[in-house]
């Protein structure tokens, strides 16, 4: 079958299925007007189409009506599944369920990552005072050193300057002391 024949077949098929556009119909009419063999072919194709449609309708004729099949299926289906759809078929219910699941998952992960000893923040150490010569001393934490197995990353200190201004410091366990992100009147 060459391309022209397949093109003709497609146009004939679209015509028979009611899918042909006006431009395609003009093209088909031109084909048929110019070619007697094509006209004969079209007639045979039309008869075949009608025979197939009739045969298929006859083959599928009968059977229970759709409503009867559906009602039987409804009775057979699980009421629990139907209720599940009624509740969770709604967008807002899905969103809420997703958020709740995310929240619960977040709590679980948080609990798994955080060691029990770390969950409580250490008590801030007593104020470290400047010595009399005015040179500040780095304060030392009054909290006891971490015991083996205790996971503690930071200690907190407060320092009062001679001017009365207070600083909150955080001391990392790697012997680093860094200013906190806020200061002033604590």
């Amino acid at each position: 079958m060459n391309m022209a024949n397949e093109m003709l077949d497609i146009l004939m098929g679209k015509h028979l299925d009611g899918e042909i556009t006006p431009d395609e119909q003009r093209l088909l009419d031109q084909f048929l007007a110019d070619d007697a063999a094509a006209r004969e072919e079209f007639g045979a194709f039309r008869r075949l189409h009608e025979q197939i449609r009739s045969a298929v309708e006859q083959a599928l004729d009968g059977g229970r009506p759709m409503e009867a099949v559906f009602d039987a299926a409804w009775r057979k289906s699980s009421p629990a599944r139907r209720m599940h759809n009624r509740i969770f078929g709604r967008e807002w219910a899905l969103t809420a369920a997703g958020l709740a699941a995310g929240l619960i998952l977040g709590f679980v992960i948080h609990g798994m990552i955080m060691a029990p000893g770390e969950s409580a923040r250490p008590t801030p150490s007593p104020l470290a005072q400047y010595p009399t010569d005015g040179e500040p001393l780095w304060p030392s934490s009054s909290t006891p050193p971490a015991t083996p197995g205790e996971n503690r990353n930071v200690d907190w200190y407060t320092v009062t300057e001679p001017s009365g201004e207070q600083w909150l410091l955080e001391g990392y366990r790697r012997q680093q002391v860094m200013p906190a992100m806020y200061y002033g009147d604590l």
Partner: peptide, 9 residues
């Protein structure tokens, strides 16, 4: 139909 009823959700 049963599957559609149960799975449409």
């Amino acid at each position: 139909c049963v599957r559609v009823i149960e799975k449409i959700g």
